[in-house]
């Protein structure tokens, strides 16, 4: 990528930085997007927030210090900050429409897909039943792909605490799913769908 300086001098990122930044974008965009999606539950807003997060990453890339923390921690901290600063714009407007649910990854078989969509909607509703912190930890864990240590750095709680909260949240989700007899079915159907 090239751009022209105001004085006419051409400048560009060096190859290393370009490749590095491109790699960072490819590695983290989906993860950040998914994480943000489950927090704002709005596709357009998620795209905006993800884009803003990566613009910040680009802007502050030179200031990132690997000695202070993992890259993933740094990027998700920026995402969390974006979330907080845009809290007012999405709070109370979190809705997941049918189209969004269908777009969620799942089986290819129509019948299985339909059933799976119902389950997806149910899981999303269940996720909403978790408190703010549990929700953050679950989404950072499963959609951000972060380790407990990285989550603890972002949320500012101990790693043990993250593990405890995570276990409780999973049990809570599992209990709810089992009560609805959906958990085992979902796992089975998802396997079927993949075939």
């Amino acid at each position: 990528m090239m751009m022209r300086h105001k004085e006419g001098k051409r400048i560009s990122l060096n190859t290393y930085d370009r490749n590095r930044l491109g790699q960072i974008f490819d590695d983290y965009y989906d993860r950040v997007y998914t994480f943000l999606y489950f927090r704002v539950k709005n596709t357009a807003l998620t795209e905006d927030l993800t884009s803003e997060t990566f613009l910040k990453v680009a802007e502050k890339y030179k200031t990132y210090n690997p000695e202070k923390g993992a890259l993933s921690t740094w990027i998700f901290t920026i995402a969390m900050n974006q979330l907080r600063s845009n809290y007012r714009s999405f709070k109370g407007k979190e809705t997941i429409n049918l189209e969004d649910i269908e777009n969620l990854s799942g089986g290819a078989d129509t019948e299985v897909c339909l059933e799976a969509n119902e389950t997806k909607a149910a899981i999303l509703r269940l996720l909403n039943e978790l408190d703010e912190r549990q929700h953050s930890i679950i989404t950072l864990k499963y959609y951000g792909g972060l380790s407990n240590k990285e989550i603890s750095d972002i949320i500012n709680i101990s790693e043990t605490n993250v593990s405890t909260i995570l276990n409780r949240a999973i049990k809570k989700l599992r209990n709810i799913l089992e009560k609805r007899d959906e958990f085992s079915d979902f796992a089975y159907k998802s396997q079927e769908g993949k075939r």
Binding site: S105, Y142, L173, F183, S190
Partner: peptide, 13 residues
């Protein structure tokens, strides 16, 4: 198991 479940409700950008 949760991984399995959560991965199937992962939204794609």
């Amino acid at each position: 198991e949760m991984d399995e479940v959560m991965n199937h409700i992962k939204p794609l950008p």
